[in-house]
Nucleic acid binder design. Sequence first.
DNA 1: GTCTATAAGAAGATAGAC
DNA 2: GTCTATCTTCTTATAGAC
Lengths: 254, 254
Amino acid sequence: MFARPTETERGEVRMTVETGSGAVDGSPDGTDGATDGARGADAREPEDAWGEVTPDAARRLLLAAVEAFAERGFHATTTRDIASRAGMSPAALYIHYRTKEELLYQISRVGHERSVRILTEANDSATNPADRLAAAVHAFVRWHAERHTTARVVQYELNALAEEHYTEIVALRRRSEEILRGILEDGVAVGEFTVADIRGTALAVLSLCIDVARWFRSGGSRTPEEIGTLYADLVLRMVGAPAGGSREGDRPER
Amino acid sequence: MFARPTETERGEVRMTVETGSGAVDGSPDGTDGATDGARGADAREPEDAWGEVTPDAARRLLLAAVEAFAERGFHATTTRDIASRAGMSPAALYIHYRTKEELLYQISRVGHERSVRILTEANDSATNPADRLAAAVHAFVRWHAERHTTARVVQYELNALAEEHYTEIVALRRRSEEILRGILEDGVAVGEFTVADIRGTALAVLSLCIDVARWFRSGGSRTPEEIGTLYADLVLRMVGAPAGGSREGDRPER
DNA sequence: GTCTATAAGAAGATAGAC
DNA sequence: GTCTATCTTCTTATAGAC
């Protein structure tokens, strides 16, 4: 029969990748794409973001998996492909990870923790809702563009996760959602934003940011920084708070 | 060796599904989701949209493929799964389609033709850019919500297409892009919109609409119609043309 | 047109030498 | 820790009876 991954100790695969660290520096050469999703051609970026992963081989495998999953998708990627990209034999993978799915889980977990962290820090970077929203969108979008390879896996391969892992990740996603919704609520409360459907608008904003990972490609005409700026502006407009501070836009409540 | 699909005549799989027809009526029970992508659970809708597909068995297979691809992704879906959903043996599939990829291609082609048609009709439904934009976004978003199962495959399984099919589909996607960009250009030209980066904004709007297919789920709290209305409003704001007609918002250029 | 049976190969994961 | 070799199962696709 088919032995399921036994619970034997095996180096304890659960690594403690310091999600934070100086990771958001990166390719300043990214740019926009078209309506067509990335097709393997690109899907590459300086992924030194995983520098913290403990055994060197484990890090190389993780990096190889990110590239492969982003290019071809989780199910279309073979363990042989991952191992060979990492310069190892197929069997070597199983020394560091119990299953192919665990690789995806690690990528997804670290990526989502990073997302929550980016949104949290942006949210704490200012007091007025408009600046908090602009900062959050700018940073979140920039990350999705700069780290589009990772982000593509993080955002679009969720369904391949095992049930228990999926549940854990969804909890992190809800946190992101709540942070954004909180900003909108505050903005409406202090009269800085004009939003009828807060929950719906929060979802739309998040969706807009996330989808950057799908279409962004290096070699286009816009840098991640520029797209972040564009999107922050668009989102401020969406909530009725034109960029540049809407001091004069405030209705005096009669 | 492994025989590639021979060019023998085999019932001519290339069907002529009238992309149009009364297909956009459908589930009025759809609604919003969360930040988590749909996970199989849902991924179902009255897909009578394929009613025009010629042999009955071919239609059932197409419908089964749409559901399976939407739930599990192209690569994770087996031909056995598709055939069994259609109530047939695995071999029956190959009477109507040369390969699994051809099923995806047909779904993708019909879906993209439908997208272009929706945008074209909306674009022709009015003369002033604001109404054209609102109509386009409303209809496009509504389709992505109502037909989210199909749309998910159409929008997110592109990479699994064979090279030649991919090229053909990308051409259709560019057409959609051009239609939207054209509306924005007209709006800026007549002073109805205030948009600095037309191309970037057009891409963002398209991206926002497309991503509805990823997160939408039946059983939520919003109907496709409501989401269409919300998004049309959000997009008008994005281009600096508040809903309800921005007659008083026009700068008289002095 | 549809079935049963099966070919041909590749997949994920393990065993055991080094 | 890493390799080579291999097990088991599943895959797409075909052959040929009905």
